[in-house]
Design a binder for these strands. Structure first.
Lengths: 213, 213
DNA sequence: TTGACCATGGGCCTATCGACCTATTTGCCG
DNA sequence: CGGCAAATAGGTCGATAGGCCCATGGTCAA
């Protein structure tokens, strides 16, 4: 659930977060009052709340939502004073609007998992939630399968073209596709294309170089 | 080209604008200096510039980019004073960050078309650019064809399922698909799914109630 | 009224796809 | 070293999709 009175930020962020495979925006509010209403209605897992908002501010709204979902406060002025106020009304996170999007995503995952972002170990907490929690099926996709999906999502769909693009035989393309279908619970390449895009598997190659553990 | 020091807004907005079929983000800058560099490098059609930015502010940057592309200034404080400053440095638009995204989109289209948003007829100018400039092929899609594409993009791909979903015969589904293929220059439903998503044809039904001319 | 376009439906035929099975090589992990 | 998963490749076969042609009723504008 997002709350911010600046609609460009609100709608932009909503769009951006929706594009992250394991995150979902269930509602947006333009002020504290709307936030309170929507939270009671939709019961989100996490709230992202701007500190400054007309009518009922983010701080004030959180004060009224004492038993609501965990909230991350977002602000332009990330000073100690605001931070203290946010903490006082029960916010479990406090981020500047200058935060990069992937960090925000990590913060949302962390808070959704019940962790707090108010401690000294912020870096470690965020780090441990850096990667998206992929759906059971998608997590088991092999690198080559992801590559094939990415290619498919770029509009190359025939067995022949895929084979040429990936420098493998048509047979192998069909084999990979069959594995993908099974893992994702789908049956054809149209659905595969949809899933590929939904999972953010299009464009280059997500290679999270994992050297240790 | 977008410039704003608040990365949540910057990246969120970039994502959101990229999602609009006829708009493209060619770069983002976090301050005026970066903006100046990037504009010279990528020569965008339109700049969206935050008034307040560290180092070189939006106002200052525009002052240096006198012969650059048309710029829309965006700010949290949409007061007359800031507006005057924006106009003084050659901005052709001045919008609050509380502007809804579709209005921003219209503003970008208008400015890209060479119009100014500084006049009294702001409403009319925006209105005339409310709808996306679709690609030649996509523009000629019939409502039913768009509906089919949307359904396809939702993961319903087999002729049979599509027929049931749309309450028509399998034959008609194939006929519609054939028309779509021809209009979009593609050959199968995997590509159709990709295009549908790319064109923003997924989710509800874009029904721009056009009563008068 | 006539034509253009849309939505609907049909038939036919071939290319392609997806399901099922097997197999080899490579590299990693225990 | 032995096993396992990934990537490669092959085969067969029935189901499905796509290409091409045609038809009808409805709407809307010329």
């Amino acid at each position: 659930m997002l709350a911010d009175d600046h609609r460009l930020l609100l709608e932009g962020l909503a769009q951006a977060i929706s594009g992250i495979p394991d995150l979902e925006v269930v509602g947006t509010a333009e002020d504290g009052d709307e936030l309170i209403q929507l939270v009671e209605l939709t019961q989100p897992d996490v709230m992202l709340v701007d500190v400054e908002m007309p009518n009922t501010s983010g701080i004030a709204a959180l004060g009224q939502l004492t038993d609501g979902p965990p909230a991350i406060m977002v602000t332009m002025h990330a000073d100690a004073e605001h931070r203290a106020k946010a903490e006082a009304v029960g916010a479990v996170g406090f981020l500047s609007k200058s935060t990069p999007l992937p960090v925000l995503a990590a913060a949302i995952r962390a808070v959704a998992a019940g962790e707090s972002l108010m401690g000294d170990d912020l870096e470690q907490v965020l780090d441990s939630h850096r990667e998206p929690v992929l759906t059971p099926g998608a997590a088991s996709l092999t690198p080559r399968e992801k590559e094939l999906l990415a290619t498919l999502a770029s509009g190359i769909s025939s067995t022949d073209d895929l084979a040429n693009e990936l420098f493998i035989s048509q047979k192998t393309v069909k084999n990979h596709l069959a594995s993908i279908y099974e893992k994702l619970g789908i049956t054809d390449r149209a659905q595969a294309a949809v899933e590929a895009i939904r999972l953010g598997l299009h464009r280059p190659s997500p290679e999270p170089d994992r050297s240790d553990s």
